[in-house]
Design a protein around this nucleic acid. Structure first.
Length: 494
RNA sequence: GGCGGCAUAGCCAAGAGGCUAAGGCAGAGGUCUGCAAAACCUUUAUUCCCCGGUUCGAGUCCGGGUGCCGCCUCCA
């Protein structure tokens, strides 16, 4: 294999070489959603980031097993089901469906396994049983708690010492717990709540145990990559480590990866602040690839600010890429060509060839450094510029070596696009889609535009510049921008 | 209060000891154009929040300060 892949590991707070447990195979477990409401742009960020990591690792030749769970039993789901007078299973099913719709729309490829907590109750019971047997958990009136004091390494991920752990848990009132830090593995059934039989009586699992049980089932006792949002570091992932390592006696996760938040005005999105955007809302306004490009234009660990301005920036960037690919296709079509023969190209062509040839390597180098998609996108723009410089000098029908070069450029763009999940549709379709969407917001029809453009072209042939400019002004006032070029006039929505 | 993170051009954003500090948007000048637009070319941070220190050499490491954010309760 080529260069090594380095990842930032939250556990050691530094970048490390990614060395999987088994050569050539990587296991990934990413915490999914709690299905009690529609997913928001923050969920989209986590999904898209790990989607790209998944795609990239596969591209690098690893055999990847990717698991992303659904939490379908939980306080919030129960609360919602009681409010609506329906079952928590129905609430969960509804929002799992919603999430899957969103993921499909965003082009997030399905993980290899998407387990549901409620379908793994017996696996969780087994883990809890093992923890009790090993003296790491205790039963208290139908509840089962993990005894944090029996796991001295508790706090190693979130870097909390024992005083802080206690300070944080201070608000805890209910106490069948031996120690305020102890957390529930199993919760005794209450009326109006879903429950399952267990050796300790009817009840339901605590939140953290599902990831431990399901990751063990689908991956094994040690996972290579465990991911999720920063907010899961404590307590969720800290507790997962405690449960899993106490139960198995083995190291649970080799590399912990955590993505940053999506902010609104530099503040974390939250329902209480009302600064909350669902994926569905945003999809009504922007093409899914615009959302992906926006998210991937920032390093995954940094916070990103969601704003109309930054979305428009992403939209402009994507359009720039598609426009270039479109121009390439106008000249070379979409056929395959034999490999580029550099010696048959003129110096300008050779320069473009070297640029395109370097692109994939630079892309990989960026991705190898903790999946730096932001820098990889910078490299794409670099190549776009090289192509934009080269293309206008070509005639509309390319010679064979030039066609081969353009086809090669298409291949490289599409390969990179496949990893980032952008440039997945034909450029003509994309540009038309954008145009139609914007057109529907304007007070003018396609026919009207075409008619005025024809009329103006006649005026231009007659050198009636006054008339020509008047029509252009007129259309501009209605939001239509005309561009004369290549013997034809094209129009765009401003 | 404790812990963690961030601070780079008008804006967004890479950069984890050493070639001229990526890239995008916006701005300025130019090429092209009947004039425009688009595209392209040139240009826009002698300097990376401030003060010290380590080093032959520091946005990059260390100490202190300032500001912003997050976690400590459910959270991607």
């Amino acid at each position: 294999m080529k260069n090594r892949v380095n990842v930032y590991n939250t556990l050691n707070q530094q970048k490390e070489e990614l060395v999987p447990l088994q050569d050539g195979r990587i296991s990934m477990y990413v915490c999914g959603i709690t299905a009690y409401d529609h997913a928001h742009i923050g969920h989209a960020r986590a999904a898209v980031i790990f989607d790209v990591i998944y795609r990239y690792l596969k591209y690098r030749g690893y055999q990847v097993t990717y698991v992303r769970n659904f939490t379908d039993v939980d306080d919030k789901i129960i609360k919602r089901s009681n409010e609506e007078g329906t079952s928590s299973a129905e609430i969960a099913a509804r929002y799992i469906t919603s999430y899957r719709e969103d993921m499909k729309a965003l082009g997030v490829v399905p993980p290899d396994h998407e387990p549901l907590a409620t379908q793994h109750i017996s696996d969780m019971i087994d883990v809890i049983q093992a923890l009790i047997e090993r003296g790491h958990a205790y039963i208290a009136d139908g509840d089962v708690y993990f005894e944090v004091a029996t796991f001295p390494e508790y706090g190693k991920l979130s870097k909390k010492n024992i005083e802080e752990q206690l300070a944080g848990a201070r608000v805890e009132t209910d106490d069948r717990k031996k120690d305020p830090r102890d957390f529930a593995l199993w919760k005794k059934a209450k009326p109006q709540e879903p429950s399952w039989p267990s050796p300790w009586g009817d009840g339901r699992p605590g939140w953290h145990i599902e990831c431990t049980a399901m990751s063990q089932k689908y991956i094994g006792e040690t996972i290579d990559i465990h991911g999720g949002g920063r907010d899961l570091i404590f307590p969720h992932h800290e507790n997962e480590i405690a449960q899993a390592e106490a139960a198995s006696g083995k190291s649970f996760v080799r590399y912990w990866l955590h993505n940053g938040f999506v902010n609104i005005n530099h503040e974390k999105m939250s329902k209480s602040l009302g600064n909350f955007f669902t994926i569905k809302e945003i999809l009504r306004q922007y093409h899914p690839e615009v959302i992906r490009l926006f998210l991937l234009s920032h390093h995954y660990r940094s916070p990103v600010d969601f704003s109309p301005e930054s979305m428009q920036e992403a939209e402009a960037g994507l359009e720039r890429m598609y426009t270039t690919v479109s121009e390439i296709e106008k000249i070379s079509g979409t056929k395959e060509y034999p490999p580029v023969e550099e010696s048959r190209l003129d110096p300008a062509g050779q320069e473009v060839y070297r640029e395109v040839e370097a692109l994939l390597g630079k892309f990989e180098a960026a991705m190898d450094e903790d999946f730096n998609t932001a820098i990889s996108i910078g490299h794409i723009f670099h190549a776009v510029r090289a192509l934009n410089k080269y293309l206008p000098g070509l005639t509309s029908k390319c010679s064979e070596p030039v066609c081969a070069l353009l086809a090669y450029a298409r291949t490289v763009f599409s390969r990179i696009g496949d990893m980032l999940g952008i440039l997945q549709v034909s450029p003509a379709d994309y540009l038309e889609m954008v145009r139609n969407r914007r057109l529907s917001e304007l007070d003018i029809t396609l026919e009207e535009i075409e008619r005025l453009v024809q009329e103006r072209n006649q005026a231009r042939r007659d050198k009636d510049w006054a008339r020509s400019d008047a029509i252009r002004q007129d259309l501009l006032a209605k939001g239509i921008l005309l561009e004369d070029g290549r013997g034809t006039t094209v129009w765009k929505i401003k």
